[in-house]
Computed example of a mutant assay.
Amino acid sequence: MPSPSDVQVITPGLLRNWELPVPTGGKESRGTVLVVGGSRFTPGAVLLAGVAALRAGAGVLQLTAAESTAATLSVQVPEALVIGLPETRTGAVAADGDGQLGELIGHADVVALGPGLKGIDETRELLRLVLDAAGPRTPLVLDAYALGALSHEPELLVGSGRPVVLTPNVTEAGHLLGRDPGDDLDAEAAELAVRYEAVVSLHGHLATPDGRRWREESGDAGLGTSGSGDVLAGLLAGLLSRGAEPAQAACWAAFAHAVSGQRLIPRHGRIGFLARELLDEIPRTLATV
């Protein structure tokens, strides 16, 4: 693995020397992923993240969504347990601290918070619930609105020792930094990793709090499509659930996400494929590294 301050390009050779765990036994050995998200208007984000987690190897999938959409989502993803959560008048998902959600968080092997969430105040409550209910060594993936919530309370992760991966886009990185990011995204990812004591995956630039850095260079313009970030967050959660450590999961996920997009270019062109079409490419991409 690279030493601190080096930036190493993620290649198949690098990944082959950093093999993913291959669990044996039943689905429990591949872990339970809980995706917390899904406002009334964006339940599809939870679907994309959840299916990506399964495609990456998770054994059990649990999804949350606004109560008004939960039944439909459960039909769309029959492999998952789907939990409807209270929703506000505007359709945001509200924390359900006294209900089933806290118990599910406590028993999950990985929690991904953010896909499809709306409402910064509601998301802050959900973030606090996740941090309170999850085990101290339960890996967390924070995406989308969860990153905005974290930017309002940056001290939440500091000193916790939690295994956390942050997946900001450039706009979300600006919220976390408190300023517009510069052109050197390697440096910005490294600053975020130190500030939040988490692994950071920023637009193909990855960093850890101890100074290790990687860059994924095969991503193309087509990944800049609605729902693509949800797929990446779920991919990460699935790899974590099967036993990968956070930096390893982040590197493998960034590569699999980018190369799955490359595989779609001959059929759909550079910018014509959809995020949901990435899902079927993930297992083949992982298997052919």
Score class of each variant (00 low, 15 high):
residue 232 L to F: 00
residue 144 A to N: 06
residue 200 V to D: 03
residue 236 L to N: 04
residue 161 G to I: 09
residue 195 R to L: 13
residue 173 A to F: 01
residue 276 R to S: 07
residue 172 E to G: 00
residue 148 G to Q: 15
residue 253 A to P: 06
residue 205 H to T: 11
residue 249 A to I: 08
residue 264 L to T: 07
residue 252 W to D: 09
residue 219 G to I: 02
residue 167 T to K: 04
residue 272 G to N: 00
residue 147 L to V: 02
residue 262 Q to Y: 12
residue 144 A to L: 02
residue 262 Q to R: 15
residue 192 L to H: 05
residue 204 G to D: 06
residue 262 Q to T: 14
residue 164 V to I: 03
residue 194 V to H: 04
residue 197 E to N: 12
residue 143 D to M: 12
residue 256 A to E: 10
residue 223 L to A: 00
residue 259 V to S: 13
residue 269 G to C: 05
residue 252 W to Y: 12
residue 265 I to C: 07
residue 185 L to R: 04
residue 237 A to Q: 08
residue 183 D to Q: 15
residue 204 G to A: 07
residue 263 R to Y: 01
residue 263 R to W: 06
residue 148 G to E: 13
residue 143 D to F: 01
residue 189 A to G: 08
residue 162 R to T: 10
residue 239 L to K: 12
residue 147 L to E: 00
residue 247 A to S: 10
residue 250 A to E: 01
residue 187 A to D: 13
residue 195 R to Y: 11
residue 174 G to A: 02
residue 179 R to C: 11
residue 227 G to Y: 04
residue 227 G to L: 03
residue 163 P to T: 00
residue 144 A to K: 08
residue 174 G to T: 00
residue 182 G to I: 11
residue 267 R to D: 14
residue 262 Q to L: 15
residue 146 A to H: 06
residue 241 S to E: 14
residue 200 V to R: 00
residue 170 V to M: 07
residue 166 L to G: 08
residue 183 D to V: 13
residue 208 T to G: 14
residue 246 P to T: 03
residue 247 A to M: 11
residue 208 T to S: 12
residue 196 Y to W: 00
residue 241 S to F: 11
residue 154 P to E: 11
residue 209 P to F: 01
residue 185 L to F: 05
residue 198 A to G: 03
residue 220 D to R: 15
residue 172 E to T: 01
residue 167 T to H: 05
residue 229 G to L: 04
residue 181 P to Q: 09
residue 181 P to H: 10
residue 235 L to V: 12
residue 201 S to R: 13
residue 216 E to H: 07
residue 227 G to S: 07
residue 161 G to D: 09
residue 141 V to D: 10
residue 158 V to W: 08
residue 238 G to K: 01
residue 265 I to L: 10
residue 241 S to V: 09
residue 196 Y to A: 00
residue 226 S to T: 12
residue 207 A to C: 09
residue 272 G to I: 05
residue 227 G to I: 00
residue 232 L to E: 06
residue 171 T to K: 15
residue 231 V to Q: 01
residue 235 L to S: 10
residue 221 A to I: 12
residue 226 S to D: 05
residue 176 L to V: 00
residue 204 G to Q: 02
residue 183 D to S: 14
residue 178 G to F: 04
residue 224 G to R: 14
residue 192 L to V: 03
residue 258 A to M: 10
residue 156 L to V: 10
residue 144 A to S: 11
residue 155 E to T: 11
residue 219 G to Q: 01
residue 166 L to Q: 04
residue 164 V to T: 13
residue 195 R to T: 13
residue 257 H to T: 05
residue 205 H to L: 13
residue 155 E to L: 08
residue 275 A to C: 00
residue 190 A to K: 09
residue 271 I to Q: 14
residue 211 G to S: 07
residue 276 R to Y: 09
residue 146 A to I: 06
residue 260 S to H: 07
residue 190 A to E: 06
residue 259 V to Q: 15
residue 150 L to F: 02
residue 254 A to Q: 05
residue 267 R to G: 11
residue 254 A to I: 05
residue 203 H to D: 15
residue 247 A to L: 06
residue 234 G to D: 08
residue 214 W to D: 11
residue 149 A to H: 04
